Structures are given as structure tokens and as C-alpha cells.
Simulated scan of single mutants.
Amino acid sequence: MDMDENKPTEKTELGMLRIDLQDSLRQSSVDPRKLSSFQRILLTTDGTVTEILEAQLWEAIHIVKLFQDITDAETAIPFLDIGPGTRIMVRKVLLRGKYSHKNYIYAESILVPERLPDNIRESLMETQKPIGQLIMQNRMESFREILTCKLEEARELSEYFDIPDDAMLVSRTYRVFANRQPIMLITEKFPEAAFQQTD
């Protein structure tokens, strides 16, 4: 029997256990076969991206807040099961190497503050800690559902990564559930040319 017979020949035939990930890749412009192993980990992980970066890069990662505000949603956000006028927190951050000062990932998130414990909500406002780290520290049970994966031009984000405007970013969007309801919607982006070397 040919051992290659069971290998996927198309990105839509990956046979992954996670249905959400398989569905998002099937509908995306991202071909996982063209990514490095570490890029695929970043794209598909259900873990804390900050800790994964630290383990791979052997460098402490810290958060640089670019924008944060609490406002009312202008329109309904179906992925969060909320309608217009719902109070939301909007955050835009960079995951940056503490010593290299290199920006590794850009992330933007929409959170529903009323669905978060008070201590996590306060820490988001007052500290530089990543969302995933706060969830872990507070032992908050959560589940992540990957919604979309895609390639897109860097455009205004290019300055953060020192790349041309038309360079491509790998992007994924997922939502986090706690107590059986979605509490946040997160999009993470990194340059397609980044993390090619995994040694």
C-alpha cells in the first residue's frame, strides 16, 4: 500500500479533528501547505499566543496598547450575539519582543465588558497584560472557536512590521466563550514573510 495515499492533496481535505478550523481554512485564501510549521501553529492554536511566541523565540513578549476605549456598538455583532447599542471594549495592541523591540503580531479585539469578571475587566483597563494571560491567571474556563483565516495586504499596518504596504499579512479571527456565551472577538495578524525559520 502506498503510504502517500492518505495524505491530503488539497487544503480542503486536511481531515483535521477541529471542525471550526477545517471550515475556516476551506473558505480562506490561506494554503496551510505554504506556511512554515510555526506559522501554522500560530494560525491554528487554541492556546495563548503570547506564551507560544515566548517559547519559540526565547524572548519575553509584552503588550503595547495602540488604542483602547469603551463605547456602544454601532451595529449588531452576530459573532458576539449582541445588538447595536451594547457596551463594548475595543482594543488594538502589538505583541512586541521585550529586548528586540520587534513587533511580532498585531491584534485587535472587541469585548463585552458585562460578561467579564470585574477583576479581568479592571486589569484590561489598568495593566499591560495580554487577555489570554489574564484569563489563565484568574482560572477562567474558556473555549476558542476559530472563525476565519485569510491573507490580506498590510496597508496601514505595514509601519508596525517595517514592510511594504502591499506585503501580505496572515490573519485569523476567533471568538472566546465563557459561561456558554461569547465574551470577545479577536483578530491576530502577522507578516506572511515572518516566522519562516522555525529552528
Rank of each mutant, 00 (worst) to 15 (best):
A194R: 00
T86W: 08
A178R: 05
D162W: 06
I120E: 08
T173D: 04
Y104I: 00
R121A: 14
Y106S: 00
R115M: 05
Q133N: 11
M140A: 08
I105E: 05
R87I: 14
V112H: 04
Y160D: 08
Q133S: 11
M136Y: 13
Q181N: 03
L185K: 14
V93D: 01
L151Y: 14
C149W: 06
E145D: 07
R115I: 09
E188K: 06
V90H: 02
E192I: 05
I183A: 02
M184N: 11
R175M: 07
M125T: 12
R139C: 10
T173M: 04
G132K: 14
A154V: 08
S123G: 09
R180T: 10
T86S: 14
R155Y: 09
T86L: 08
L169R: 08
L147C: 10
I146C: 10
I105N: 07
E152T: 14
E188P: 10
E152A: 13
A107P: 09
E108R: 09
R91A: 03
I88D: 09
N103S: 07
I120G: 00
I131E: 04
E156M: 03
E156H: 12
I110F: 01
L124A: 05
F190R: 02
T127D: 07
Q128V: 03
V90C: 04
S109M: 09
R180E: 15
L169C: 00
C149F: 00
A167F: 07
L169K: 08
Q128I: 07
Y106E: 03
K102V: 07
A194Q: 05
R115W: 06
Y99P: 03
R172W: 03
E153M: 10
H101N: 13
A107E: 06
I135N: 04
G97C: 05
P117L: 03
I163D: 10
R175L: 08
Y160H: 15
Q128G: 15
N138D: 15
L169I: 04
P113Y: 03
L147V: 13
D166T: 10
S142W: 00
Q181Y: 08
I120V: 15
I163R: 10
A178Y: 06
S109Q: 10
L157V: 01
E114W: 01
Q181M: 12
A107R: 03
M89K: 13
M136L: 15
E156A: 06
I131N: 07
F161R: 10
G97I: 06
M136Q: 13
A167L: 02
T86F: 03
E192G: 00
E159T: 12
E126A: 09
L94R: 01
R96Y: 06
R172V: 07
K92T: 06
L124V: 11
I183M: 08
P182R: 02
C149R: 01
E152M: 13
I163W: 04
D118R: 14
Q133H: 11
I146H: 14
I110P: 02
R87C: 12
I183T: 01
Y106C: 07
S123H: 11
L94W: 02
